[in-house]
Amino acid sequence: MGRLLQFEIFRYNPEDKDSAPHMQTFVMEETTNMTLFIALNRLREEQDPGLIFDFCCRAGICGACAMVINGRPGLACQTKTKDLPEIITLLPLPVFKLIGDLSVDTGIWFREMYQKTESWIHTTKEFDSAKEEERMDNAVAEEIYELERCVECGCCIAACGTARLREDFMGAAALNRIARFVIDPRDQRTDNQYFDIIGNDYGIFGCMGLLACEDVCPKKLPLQNQLGFLRRKMGITAIKQFIRK
């Protein structure tokens, strides 16, 4: 027989007027190779179908199932119960708007982020279907992909001390997004244009360097390097603007 796992789960359904925020205890027997994906679905199907949480790919690719697992933001689908103690505390990610129980609204947050960062290639070139593609160095392509690996799970935002203190802070995910376009030769934006977006306390200069973003990132993105890179680049851009004036 496996361990008896005790789940302490945050419960609150804003759409239910009888519901008040509280912690609820569930008990379930552990089975081999159990992940939180297996466990939570069993809880819902066997014990409480009203339990709200998100899963999608359940393979660590999509980022849907981020939650605070025993204090740390992480992806539930790639958390194995055998790596956890018998008491497992699950909370929804802070910062994001609560939808219910363990589910938060990352969708809206990230769509706003796309608009703030103008998360797309800015180019005046038109696509010509008759022409060969523009060439690119493979190393550059791989560098871009390295930053594009972000799955928008929201862990870095939830773990960020700055974001918790200031709602308008862009956070590592948004800054990493900018870094992705800065290194992309197809994007024609200048340093000054990037500066207009992130050269302030909502952006890179708001970062206090607590680095929990990097330490909790389930995709192990080199976030600190990007933040440092952007701070230097934007800092220098400001000085250059000052000198030219």
């Binding site: 706003e112 608009q115 703030k116 308008d168 500066f195 207009d196 050269g199 302030n200 306390d201 909502y202 200069f205 708001g206 701070r231 934007m234 800092g235 851009t237 400001a238 000085i239 603007q241 000052f242």
Partner: peptide, 17 residues
Amino acid sequence: ATMHVVRPGRRDAYLDW
């Protein structure tokens, strides 16, 4: 609405330096 916040120019950069 945060999109419409007046950009603080270079102030924050200088302060950070």
